[in-house]
Nucleic acid binder design. Sequence first.
DNA 1: TGGCGCGAAAATGTCAGACAATTAAATATA
DNA 2: TATATTTAATTGTCTGACATTTTCGCGCCA
Lengths: 245, 245
Amino acid sequence: MKTELTNQTDLSAQIAKAIRDAIIEGRMIVDERLPSEAELAAEFNVSRPTVREALKRLAAQSLIRTQRGAHGGAFVNRLSYEEAYGQQITTATLLLSMNAVRFETACEARYALERACAPLAATRRSPDHLATMRAEIHRQAQPGLSDESFCASDVTFHRALVDAADNPVLSYQLAGAVEAMQPLMNMITFTERSREAIVGLHTAIADAIEIGDAALADANLSELAAYTLTLGQGAMEKRARKSPA
Amino acid sequence: MKTELTNQTDLSAQIAKAIRDAIIEGRMIVDERLPSEAELAAEFNVSRPTVREALKRLAAQSLIRTQRGAHGGAFVNRLSYEEAYGQQITTATLLLSMNAVRFETACEARYALERACAPLAATRRSPDHLATMRAEIHRQAQPGLSDESFCASDVTFHRALVDAADNPVLSYQLAGAVEAMQPLMNMITFTERSREAIVGLHTAIADAIEIGDAALADANLSELAAYTLTLGQGAMEKRARKSPA
DNA sequence: TGGCGCGAAAATGTCAGACAATTAAATATA
DNA sequence: TATATTTAATTGTCTGACATTTTCGCGCCA
């Protein structure tokens, strides 16, 4: 079968779209093998390099995977949560860094979403998630921890909190929101006092989650949100004074 | 400069990663022009088709755009909210459809996130967003509307609700959650009674948002969540009976 | 002097054909 | 029967060429 293409845009983009649509609309199912590159080239009436460019586009979105060898080829890939997390994080991080998103905006979004998880987390938290949260709190209390490590630990803590809600779709959505904040948080210099305050709130949150008190967890998260906001605004002001427009 | 590559994986994947890292880490800024394909080929010591495959991978993620012609080339692309929405939606939709996510899980995630927006929406809603919500409610009350159109209108209504929170980062995050639900919702056959109930709740939500009553909006959203859940469970049961495993 | 057309140059887009590398199945061999 | 070898299919990569698009500058003419 020869499939018609216009010559308005890149052929490889059109071919990629045609295959992507087939996958999204369910005309191709998971693990189904696509025709070989040579066959696709014949079908779309283009050369093999052009087909390959199209396939690479799809591979970049984790829509297909390729195998070499005799019974190799391109297969429709089951999009795993891990892959989806990764794409989410990349996209969210770039979106924030490239669009001059205000610290307040990102912070508000992140804590609004995180508070949505708190009630579920309070109900369903497993010992595992609680242990992770406690371990990260302990790490954060270590003196001599660099600001970067402190932030990284903060991210791990919050992801454990989100994962405690035991809803993979929520975890997927939140991955971007939590991780993309890290570059912004990394701009903050954490004083000993501010670390102490954060560790205190983290502990309060973990306690509330442990005893299953959703309202208390929510209240503490709110407080943490407000505190983070003031820290961030301070850091942003300092930056602004150093390099005025 | 010659950049070394291993021969463990695809060269094009390695090249794409090298460039992607440069963009993410800020070593290349928005609108900066990449070296020409020939120059990249020389730098990485590969052929031009290989470089092109790498560039197509990046283009698929909207990280670069290309221009033909004399002063053309590949440029670092400012990731717009629109592009990010699109990727979000594609990824979220596939994630749900390919991983046999239960209706309950998706529904819970969506409404949890949406309720996070409600308080902000109640504070900040613009006449524009309210008008969109009212218009969609009106459309939903039309008799003879197909189930698909009803669902599409539902999505528009909820996106207006989310956008009313006036936080583009939140809107971005929620785009996937709201849109990805549509295929699942499309499986539901809406009776006249259920449409009436939904329109009623939508109206109650819009009213609460309009008068700025966050708690009332939240309560109505909760009720809508619960109602949607029962509708969905009914539909899933019917499907299960029709085609038992 | 000022606009207009036209060609040169630079870059991406596409093609054709070849060879390398990898993998699984079929076949031959001990 | 178990193992080694061949073979075929397929993706990965390279080379070289040509097509197309776009900008720049030059010469021409009013």
